[in-house]
């Protein structure tokens, strides 16, 4: 099993960190696309199939919340799990992201292992490499 991943962040440094974590997750990543805002991400999603979107919130042009919202309104894109990676630790903001359709949340600063664990959790792969039982809450935070 291999994956296509889209990383959305206006910081190339952060995209680079997340890309390395994804590539070192132990699972084959065929394509790791990058976008610097939500608009660029939607443009990529028009042409490419991805299995996971990892997105920042605070970005110019189109932020991560709007990106998740637009994806949920699309019959195809709504199936792609989105992990929000952001500096914002505010519960209300996180809840809003989940209500819009995000499947996971990671707060910066994070350790590489925390990012890897979230990535695997949301795509449904357990630490032992097995796929998790189908669980629609997988990867979500409990409130």
């Amino acid at each position: 099993m291999s994956f296509n991943v889209l990383i959305v962040d206006d910081s190339m440094s952060m995209r680079s960190v997340i890309r390395r974590v994804v590539e070192m997750s132990g699972y084959k990543v065929d394509n790791c696309y990058e976008a610097s805002n939500g608009l660029e991400a939607l443009s990529i999603l028009e042409d490419k199939w991805v299995d996971l979107v990892i997105s920042d919130i605070n970005m110019p042009e189109m932020d991560g919340m709007e990106l998740v919202s637009r994806m949920r309104k699309d019959d195809v894109l709504r199936m792609i799990p989105v992990v929000i990676v952001t500096t914002e630790g505010n519960e209300e903001r996180v809840r809003e992201a989940f209500e819009l359709g995000a499947r996971g949340y990671l707060k910066k600063p994070f350790l590489p292992e925390e990012c890897r664990r979230m990535f695997l959790q949301v795509i449904g792969v357990q630490e032992d490499g097995e796929y998790a039982e189908d669980d629609e809450d997988s990867g979500d935070l409990d409130f």
Binding site: S11, T87, G89, N90, E92, K107, K108
Partner: peptide, 24 residues
Amino acid sequence: EAVNMICGHFLSLVDPGRQYELTV
């Protein structure tokens, strides 16, 4: 990115549970 993370992390520690808008 450093100042962005410092600010977000700082606000989540100093005033948890409250919403702030951060500039780019």
